[in-house]
């Protein structure tokens, strides 16, 4: 009977795999059609009613990409560097502080008022200060992005630790695990699914913070490019910037999800 149980679930996995191997599923086809209709509508509208000045046509947009190729790549890399490095610093520090605060009540007493004071302030409101203190280079933007990611991850970590089922901790204690071992082998894996959710929020926030800080003062980056294009009314360049940000943000989120799914492959999922 036990054998059968596993046999059946193996069959189920097999079916899922063949489904994934098919190039396009029914649902996938519908999504592709939706996108095609939108592009067609976009072409039709920009050809007739909408002036190019307000919204560029698909052809204009593609041509702009060709024209700006070199500078586009360097701006893209500048923005990605700020997003990824800032986010990583913030997220790692956030998780570390969250764990430290749950580990020791004195650390908690010191950090809690700082974090609670920082949390209600939208990080974008700090941009003018950061430009004043650090100029328009990378430093201020990295710190700003790190602060955003830090506040999200520290709160997520603290909440997640609070909700780890006490039965796991008790079981580990009866088996001889020390406090450090309980944190390493029980609490960290138990909070990972929640942390992945926090990282996804952090990705979206980091893009927003980097673009906003590039709007207000920068010499490179996609946000800077959009601002320049706005001044010269190059709506096609603005649109290219927006599209690249959208696609990149989606790809980064996708990567986080793939890594996250691997790290939490043990977790039961409702499909």
């Amino acid at each position: 009977m036990k054998r059968n149980e596993l046999g059946n679930s193996a069959d189920a996995v097999g079916k899922e795999d063949t489904r994934k191997r098919r190039l396009i599923t029914g649902e996938g086809a519908v999504s592709v059609i939706t996108v095609l209709i939108l592009v067609a509508l976009w072409t039709a509208l920009t050809d007739s009613y909408i002036d190019d000045l307000y919204f560029p046509s698909p052809m204009d947009t593609i041509q702009v990409v060709g024209r700006m190729e070199g500078v586009l790549v360097s701006y893209f890399l500048a923005t990605m560097y700020r997003v990824v490095v800032g986010m990583l610093i913030g997220a790692v520090l956030g998780v570390f502080c969250g764990v430290a605060m749950s580990w020791n009540k004195w650390i908690n007493s010191v950090l809690d008022p700082l974090i609670e004071g920082l949390r209600p302030i939208p990080a974008v409101a700090l941009i003018p200060f950061f430009i004043l203190w650090f100029g328009i280079g990378d430093t201020g933007k990295l710190i700003l992005t790190a602060i955003g990611g830090f506040t999200v991850m520290v709160v997520t970590t603290l909440e997640a630790i609070k909700h780890v089922s006490p039965i796991y901790i008790m079981a580990a204690r009866t088996l001889g695990a020390s406090r450090l071992e309980i944190y390493r082998t029980i609490i960290l894996p138990a909070i990972t699914p929640t942390l992945i959710g926090g990282v996804r929020v952090t990705v979206a926030l980091s893009f927003a913070l980097v673009i906003a800080s590039e709007f207000m003062g920068a010499q490179s980056g996609l946000g800077y490019m959009i601002m320049l294009a706005r001044r010269t009314l190059q709506t096609d360049a603005i649109l290219v910037g927006v599209i690249i940000i959208g696609i990149t943000s989606w790809i980064v989120d996708r990567c986080v999800r793939i890594v996250g799914n691997y790290l939490t492959r043990w977790a039961p999922r409702s499909e």
């Binding site: 894996p189 138990a190 939490t264 977790a267």
Partner: peptide, 8 residues
């Protein structure tokens, strides 16, 4: 309750 660690 179920105290088996699901991540192991």
């Amino acid at each position: 309750g179920d105290a088996v660690f699901p991540w192991m």
